[in-house]
Every structure is written in C-alpha cells, then in structure tokens.
Nucleic acid binder design. Sequence first.
RNA 1: GCCCCCAUCGUCUAGUGGCCUAGGACGUCGCCCUUUCAAGGCGGUAACACGGGUUCGAAUCCCGUUGGGGGCACCA
Length: 449
Amino acid sequence: MFHVGGARSALFNWVMARQSGGALVLRIEDTDTSRNRPEWTEGIIRALAWLGMDGDEYEGPYFQSAGAAQHAEALRTLMDQGRAYYCDCTRDDVIARTGDQHKGYDGFCRDRGLGPGPGRAVRFRTPDEGQTTVVDLIRGNPVFENAVLEDFVVARADGSVTFLLANAVDDIQQRITHVVRGEEHLSNAPKQQLLWTALGAEPPVWAHVPVIVNEKRQKLSKRRDKVALEDYRAEGYLPEAMRNYLMLLGWAPSGDREIVPWKDIEAEFRIEDVNSSPAFFDVKKLRAINGEYVRALPVERFAAECRPWLDPARAPWDSYDPAVFERLASLAQTRVAVLAEIVEMVDFAFLPEPPFDEAAWNKGMKGPAAELLAGAEDAYRDAPWTAEELKTRLEAVGTAHGLKLGKAQAPVRVAVTGRTVGLPLFESLEILGRETTLARIAAARTRLG
RNA sequence: GCCCCCAUCGUCUAGUGGCCUAGGACGUCGCCCUUUCAAGGCGGUAACACGGGUUCGAAUCCCGUUGGGGGCACCA
C-alpha cells in the first residue's frame, strides 16, 4: 500500500533531485523487524515506477536494517560521550509517575548510572537548555526549546536502534542534504538534529510538507480514507493525471494553468512555494483532471489503456471482440473520466443479453413504448444498416406518435443496451448489427407483454 | 495537558503593501448545442476568520483572539 501523501512527498523529492542534479535515495526504513514485510518494498517500487520513477531515477533501495553495525557504532559513540544512558523504565512506569499518557519521558533513569542488561533501553540525553532551530524550506524556521524535548529512546532493549538514530546515522553516511517529508515528522526534526550534531555532523535542510486531509480536515488515514495509490490505479486513474493532481496540492504552476506537462512542472516547481497549510484530497477534482488526460489521449492509446478493464478475466463477459471495441472507443472517450467506467459503457456489445436494470426498464418503457418498439422493429428489418438511416427511420416512427427523437429513442435504447443513458444510440446499433438489434427489440416486446 | 504548525470562494489555489469593485480551476446553478449521457461553448454563484495596530494606503507586515491541524511509543 502506497499512501497518496507518500506519493506526493516522493514526487517533490524527485523533482528537487532532478532540478539540483542531486541524487534521490530510496531507503527502506525497516529497523522494526517485528512489523516489516519484504513484499512491501516491491509494492513501493512498483508504485514509484507507475508514477514515472524508474529504478534509474533514484539510488537504492537501501535497507536500513543492513546498517546495523554502523548504528551500533553510533550508539557507542553517544554512550562514550555521555549523551545516552540506559533506562529500565517501562511505559507503564512512566505513566504511573507522571500520571499522564502524553507527557513523555520524565528522565527518571538519567543519572542512575545503569549498565546494560535485559529490559534496558538506551535514551538520548537531550540538553536542558538552549534551543534547536530547524531550517525548514516550507515553514520558516521553527524553534524548539531543548528543555521540552524528552529523552527519547535510541536503542531498544534488544539492542536494535530506533528510527530516529538509524535515520541520523544513515543520512549522515549517505550525505543527505535535504529531507523532504510529511509534516507529521516535524516534531522529530529537532531530535534528529540533536543526534546529527552529537554525531559531529552539520544538520540538513528540511522541508515538512503539510499533510493531506479528508473532508473532515483530518490527516488521511488508511483506516477511514481511500489513500492507496494502487486503488486509484485499479480504478483507472492515469499516472500522468495522478501526479499532476498531487503536485497541485499545495502548489500551483505559473499562470492560470493546472493541467501542466510534467516537464513544465519539473522546470517550475519550487519547494519554497509549497503552501504550509493542509490540503484536502478532492477526488472530484482528481476525477476531472483525469478526464482531461483521458480525452487528450489519441484514440488508439485510449483503447489500449482500456484493455485491462475489458479483458474477460476481469470484465463481466466471457469473450470480447477488440475490433468491435475499437469502433466504440471514440464514442466512449469523452464519456469516460476514469477508465473503469468503460465497462458499463460498452457492456451491451459484449454481453449475450443486455444488462437488466429494473429502474432503467421502468423509465424507458413508459408511454407508447410497445408501439415504438414495434415500429422500430418493422422499420429496421430491411433498413440499410447505417447509423444515419437508423436514425431517420426511428425519427419517422416517433413522428407518427407525435414524439421527438429524444423520447422515441428511449425504449429502443433500453431494449438494446439495457440502460437509459449511454453511447450515441444509432452508432451503437450500427456496430451491434441488425441481427442482435432486432433480437433484443423482439425480446423486449415479449417482456412488455 | 505540553510542544509545533496553519488560516483567501464549498474545495485546490493566484496574490509577496497600491495593478484587487480579489484572478483561475474543480464543484454547483442556468442557457446554448443535442438521439440519451457526456464532451464543448456562454453566463451566474461564491472567499480575504475576528479584533487591534503599523502605513498616505493592507488579503498582503506586527500583536492578540477564535477556529483547525500535526506530534508527544522500546512505530516509522
């Protein structure tokens, strides 16, 4: 599962790396062995590739767990400097003492001089005074009082180091100059910076990207919101549209433009211009933008992009004819905003029977539907099978009943396609062919009684 | 509770002291086109959270208020 927020951060990182000629490094932060799956990495790589980031666009992936030796060494350095100490407090101990779940560590073991042992973690001794200023390209330079920074854990009781330390060590070693990540990490920045300094390095420049929120203005969460890039991909959002939209969240290209070629984005983007307030993930807008991209596709490309959704393995029909779809594609292109929608747009042509929908049937078969269908059947039996002719003949049938084409076509549409709305009717009939069309009209007449 | 952040139409944004009776896009509404539905065209709707300053002048700068958000794990 690749979170859309992560995707946006990745995009920002990517663009910045390309602009500066620097390298983008992909690091899998797997220091917590208890919650890690190798296949997740594959998913991340696949998602990045879908967005346009092939393996040659970044260095790595590096696995953080592979650096355990250096992490351990850094830990020793901190111990030797007296910047870290052993602690045997459990979380419950701390809460019992402070009476507050969210108060952070109280420094109980700071000067107990504990040695290593089972159940003992290592905490970093944060300075009692002074301030830590985080140089952040997006939110100015937030200042943190060192005194309010708790003594955080840098190594677990089992000896493994935590994310904070591992990151600092790896960042220093990989000579990271810019850290661009979600705002939820902002409060980690001063801690990590303290670590960088303690390890003798000059801290990087940060950019904490505002979170993406839902309609209730809360950070998008896997639990309650649709956040997986893969889900959008499966619905038929185009990667070009997705990355264009993601870049629009918190940033805007020059001029009154929104649909912008990627090369322009790459040329114009500046992390300093990213808004510092949270942005709502508006699927309606995403959809609109996707529609623009879909319509801009050459029709052959459009047809090719639709293929996965039409494949009998996935579609509700057993077999389908690519030649038929090719003829329908141009009719469907302006009517599809998200590729998955192609299925119900053209299913009438591949299903043995038109799909039946009670509401559609009732709506389409109102009034003189029976007479209209009878008239159409007669008119079509020997008609030259062209859309033009089919239209003219049904028009005449309608006129005989005092109806305009808009009304007269309704029963035929429902009889043949099963729906009240859809592709242009006469063109569809032409492609469907006389035999099927007539058979469906006859079937509908029977059903009508 | 503590730390940090944020605040322009419903939404994403433009705007960096006069060009702003605040622009664009999505949404929404209406009209046109029309074989349904889209697409397309035209038009409407709708915002500087509030209160104080600073200034000749403030959406833009400062302070406060209110409101929202993020974080406070031996997760990352």
